[in-house]
Structure formats: C-alpha cells, structure tokens
C-alpha cells in the first residue's frame, strides 16, 4: 500500500504544484520518485520529526499542501505538540502519513508499532483520521486527503494487503463503505485489519450467522449514521481494529452507541492495554492477539450467545 500511496501522490503532484513533501530521513525505496521528479518540493530535514512537522506547518501557511511521512510512530508521537499547536491550532494544510500502522513492523519491536495513534490523533480538534483498508480505498483516500483543506492523518499499510472490495468504491471522508450486508450483527473494521473481519464474516455465514461488514476508513469524523443503522438493523456491533482497545475505533463507536441509548450487544476487538513483548512477524502477532478470522468469528459468536 505504501508503494501505491507514493505513486498516487506523485500523480497528483504532477497536476498540483503546491504539494510538498517534508521528510525526516525516511522512505528508502519508496519516495525517490517524488524526490527526483520534484527536488524543489522535497525537503529532508534529517532525523528530526519535531522540525519536520513545524516546517511542514510553515510551508503550508504559505499557501501550500505539506505532507509529512514516516514509519509508524515517528511522525506522530515525538512531534505531538507540533501537530497539536502548529498544525491543528493553525488549521494548517498538513497531511501526516504513517507507514505501517498497528503491528505492521512486527519483529522490529514496540518502538515501531503504532498502536495508540488512532486514539491520539482522534482527540486533536480539526484532525481528520483516515485508515484505508485496501488499495482501492488507499488510492481514493490520497485524493480525498489532498482535496480536504486542513489537517489529515493517514494511516497507510505497509505491504501488499489483499483487496477488500471487488469493484469500484464510493469513497467519501466520513462515510463508511458497506462491504457485505447481513442481519445478525455488524463487524466494523478500520484499516487493513478489516480484511480479516471480512473473512470472519465468511466463517460466520458458514455457521448460519449473517454478518454485515463496514469498512470505517474514516475514524474521524465517524459515520454515526452507519453505526446507528447497524445497531438498529442488525442488533449487535463488533469493532475490529489493529490498535489498543482503548480510545480508537471501538471507543469512537462506543461513544455513538452509548449516546444513542438502546443498549445493543457490543464488543471491541483490539489489542490488550499492554505492550507487545512477543517477537514475530505481522501475521503471527495478529493471530496471537485474537485477530485470526476464526478468532474474530468466535468472539462475535460469544457476543451473540450472550445476547440470547
């Protein structure tokens, strides 16, 4: 997905000469296309994410669109105050892109695992939070991100994620995409883990449970209508996110459901509120932490059984 991201951004930058990339010594093997095509619009500030973000704000304040881009936590946590005070408070047209959300960098360890990003970015006023599920969403999300006037956080996948959507999609910021319909419960996913939720729905179907699947590519602003329709029409909701179970998609959906009242059965599938001490590949870690499609399906069934 990160290769696709860079290709799409490069295509857009061919037509829009106000797009700049501000990087902190990163992107080996991916960003050279932009750097070579637009050397004047590409700044490497060295390993210095605070300055990267502040410079991006200044560049944007001169009427441009500035994209910061780095691995996992680097463009968010070290420079969180710059994102808050410089980017969001100024409503600067800065796009913060991370490569490899969740456990994507697997064996590199906790420093490289972005597992609180959705919660933190979601809490910043004026920030749009995007986490596309597959290539189709990723491509559309780059266009939407650039077209949106203001701060955007973009959680990009790391490798060749499988296609969630069979055909063309209608991608709009703040509008969930229904991947399949169902009447017994709704699985809501965000980011690349949504494909596993989709596979879980297939398993559930073979067990006689019809699951609706929503791709919630925009964590903020959240599609409240899609959440409330899911609760009303399927009477049970399960969120699936590659993120700490606190404060991310599950937290956002819980807020909507709680305020609406009605009390449908609800479950958040996410990472436990503790750091990962196992060392292993992305998929191995996901399976270990309850994201195997069979495990998601089993969690959903337990929720339904509790309801009955």
């Amino acid at each position: 997905m990160r290769s696709l991201f860079n290709k799409v951004l490069l295509d857009i930058a061919e037509k829009n000469d106000r797009i700049y990339m501000v990087l902190a010594d990163i992107g080996y093997g991916e960003i050279e296309g932009f750097a070579e095509r637009f050397p004047d619009r590409f700044f490497n500030v060295g390993v210095a994410e605070q300055n990267m973000t502040g410079v991006a704000c200044g560049v944007a304040m001169e009427g441009n669109i500035a994209v910061t881009y780095s691995i996992a936590n680097f463009p968010t946590l070290r420079c969180l105050e710059q994102i808050r005070n410089d980017v969001c408070y100024h409503k600067a047209n800065v796009k913060i892109v991370i490569i490899g959300g969740g456990l994507a960098y697997g064996a590199l360890g906790v420093s490289h695992q972005a597992t609180e990003d959705l919660a933190i970015m979601r809490a910043l006023p004026d920030m749009v939070v995007l986490a596309p599920a597959d290539f189709a969403e990723a491509e559309a999300a780059v266009h939407a991100m650039i077209a949106h006037d203001g701060p955007v956080y973009y959680r990009c996948g790391y490798k060749k994620e499988p296609a969630l959507h069979g055909g063309p999609i209608d991608f709009r910021i703040g509008r969930a995409i229904q991947v399949r319909d169902g009447s017994d419960l709704t699985l809501i996913g965000t980011g690349t883990i949504t494909y596993r939720a989709f596979e879980a729905a297939g398993i559930l179907e073979s067990q006689g449970v019809k699951a609706r699947v929503l791709s919630m590519h925009t964590v903020k602003p959240l599609d409240r209508e899609a959440v409330l329709a899911a609760a009303r029409e399927t009477r049970a909701v399960v969120t699936v996110e590659e993120h700490n179970v606190l404060g991310g998609l599950g937290g956002a959906v819980a807020e909507v459901l709680a305020e609406a009242g009605g009390g449908v059965p609800f479950l958040r599938v996410g990472l436990p509120d503790s750091y990962i001490h196992l060392v292993g590949s992305h998929n191995w870690l996901l399976d270990h932490y309850g994201f195997a499609p069979q495990a998601i399906a089993a969690s959903a069934r337990r929720l339904l059984e509790g309801r009955q």
């Binding site: 700049y20 501000v22 004047d40 619009r41 700044f43 605070q50 300055n51 973000t53 502040g54 410079v55 991006a56 704000c57 200044g58 560049v59 944007a60 304040m61 001169e62 009427g63 441009n64 500035a66 105050e81 710059q82 005070n85 410089d86």
Partner: peptide, 16 residues
C-alpha cells in the same frame, strides 16, 4: 516551535 514554522515559511517563500 517558532523557528521550525519560520523555517517552513522561509522555504515556502523561496519556492514561491
């Protein structure tokens, strides 16, 4: 924070 922002402005101005 200010020097980073100002640096970005200076870059933007130069390129404009």
């Amino acid at each position: 924070h200010g020097l980073s922002i100002a640096g970005g402005m200076a870059l933007g101005l130069r390129l404009s």
